Simulated assay, not measured.
Amino acid sequence: MGKRRANRTTTSEPIRPCPCGSGEAYGACCGRLHQRATTAATAEQLMRSRFSAYAVGDADYLLRTWHSTTRPARLTLDPQQRWTRLDIFGTDRGGLFDTTGAVEFRAHYRESGQVGTMYEHSRFVRENGEWVYLDAVSLSD
């Protein structure tokens, strides 16, 4: 997957919906996390912001929010792959006062004219007080 620069929301840029599906504008939702204005308060919020990072091509954010023991040395995103929708099915812990959490989700994408999905159970932990992605188990329908 080829690395792309994230599309950053600025005051002169038209308001666009956040890719995570929250219904908020990108700049008021995941864009704030991508720009380091804040950090994820919950595991689900981190999951949504990581999906959005894939959607806007922000590999730096993905690496920054990956647990130090499982983070790859580098991440190259495929410019042909377009992440189009995120469905969250449930969470296990991952709240404001938790140290671990999990999110079950399906991410939809389009690649080379074909549609696809990724269905996973991802685990998150707090590292240095912030939520980070640890690992995932792929699920089948």
Rank of each mutant, 00 (worst) to 15 (best):
D92W: 10
D98A: 01
H67W: 01
A136N: 15
R123V: 09
T39S: 00
A40E: 00
T99L: 14
H34Q: 05
T11L: 14
A107W: 03
T39F: 06
G27W: 02
G113A: 00
G90I: 01
E104H: 06
V115P: 10
G113H: 07
G2L: 15
A55N: 01
R123L: 14
T99M: 11
T117E: 03
R74S: 12
A28D: 09
P79Q: 12
W83R: 02
R5C: 14
V115K: 15
P17K: 14
F89K: 00
H34L: 00
A102L: 00
Y26H: 03
T100Y: 07
G2I: 15
R16L: 11
M47S: 06
E127W: 05
P72M: 07
V125I: 10
Y133D: 01
L77G: 08
L139H: 02
F105A: 01
M118S: 14
D78W: 06
L75A: 03
Y133E: 04
G95A: 08
R71I: 07
Y61I: 01
T39C: 08
Q81L: 11
F97V: 14
R71K: 10
L139W: 11
G90M: 05
Y61Q: 07
T70L: 05
R4A: 05
R74E: 15
D98P: 00
V103M: 02
R4C: 10
T99C: 14
R4T: 13
G94W: 09
L77H: 03
P14L: 06
E24L: 04
A41M: 06
Q114W: 00
Y133K: 04
H34K: 03
S22C: 01
D87R: 13
V137L: 14
R5F: 13
S22W: 02
L63C: 00
E44N: 08
A102Y: 05
Q80Y: 13
S52A: 11
D58P: 00
R4P: 06
G101H: 01
Q45H: 09
